[in-house]
């Protein structure tokens, strides 16, 4: 028995080598981007693999102002923040209704919201654009915020419904006996109670909104978001790699910070979503 155990431990140790290389490969691209972002164009030409020996912030300054990343960054922040807040409010309200209130067609409406998971933006691209045009929402921040909310909503509603279903019903009954209106129950009881789930959702939705390209490409043709801006930058500055990589670093920075701060929450949120479907 101990012989087999020993052999297994050896096998695992051997497996750790390619697994370690794979782990390094996961970190290399972002290291590549950061490292080259601090080089001058000549430095990069001379030695593209080496470390940036005389780090310069020039690329960041140029990318931020001359390549308009400041503008794009602001657009992304507005759209992401707006959509994340709206998603929290709408999904918390919907989750409260679906989990705690009794009304006709409750199950059917839940199914309608979930079924829209089967309709990604590509499937409704043309009519979606026409709807946006008809509502005068193209090239507006509010249009992008509403689109993000509509397309990232079902998962959030599902999570909030599941979360609120796990809470004891007595909480709501107690508040209602105290004479509170439903809106007050939601605001004073359900919203604070839902915070653990809502914070996880806020982080996951921040990733989805910030990283999106297709929806923002469609809706924001004039006021680019960061991801649209970066993909345009790629064509413009293909011979100025350090400048381009500094743009990449600026665009990835908020996500990397989120990952470092909330890794555990992101992991558990995705695992819960995955297992429960």
């Amino acid at each position: 028995m101990s012989g087999a155990g020993k052999r297994q431990r050896l096998a695992l140790r051997i497996a750790a080598v390619p697994m370690g290389l794979l782990a390094l490969s996961c970190l290399y691209p972002i290291f590549f981007a950061i490292n080259n972002a601090f080089k001058t164009r000549d430095d990069y030409m001379r030695d593209r693999f080496g470390l940036a020996t005389q780090p310069t912030f020039d690329n960041f300054v140029q990318a931020w102002s001359r390549a308009h990343l400041n503008e794009y960054f602001l657009n992304s922040v507005i759209a992401t923040l707006g959509a994340v807040i709206l998603l929290m409010v709408v999904s918390s309200m919907a989750g409260f209704a679906l989990a705690s209130l009794r009304f006709p067609y409750r199950r059917f409406l839940f199914a309608v919201i979930l079924s829209s998971l089967m309709i990604p933006v590509q499937v409704v691209l043309v009519p979606f654009m026409r709807t946006m045009l008809a509502l005068n929402l193209v090239n507006t921040h509010i249009g992008l915020i509403l689109s993000y909310t509509a397309f990232f909503l079902p998962f959030s509603v599902y999570m909030m419904t599941a979360f609120y279903s796990g809470l004891p019903r007595e909480l709501i009954e107690a508040a209602r006996i105290d004479g509170a209106k439903l809106l007050q129950v939601w605001w004073h009881v359900m919203l604070p109670l839902g915070m653990p789930a809502l914070v996880t959702l806020a982080i996951l939705n921040t990733l989805s909104c910030w990283n999106d390209i297709l929806i923002s490409l469609l809706v924001m043709q004039k006021h680019r978001t960061l991801m649209v801006g970066i993909s345009a930058l790629k064509g413009q500055y293909s011979d100025q790699i350090p400048l381009f990589t500094s743009g990449i670093v600026i665009a990835a920075a908020p996500i990397v910070v989120l990952y470092i701060l909330f890794q555990r929450r992101i992991v558990s949120g995705i695992a819960v979503g995955a297992v429960k479907g």
Partner: peptide
């Protein structure tokens, strides 16, 4: 967790 735009660019 990185955007496909970031990954694609790199």
């Amino acid at each position: 967790i990185l955007s496909s735009v970031i990954i694609g660019s790199i």
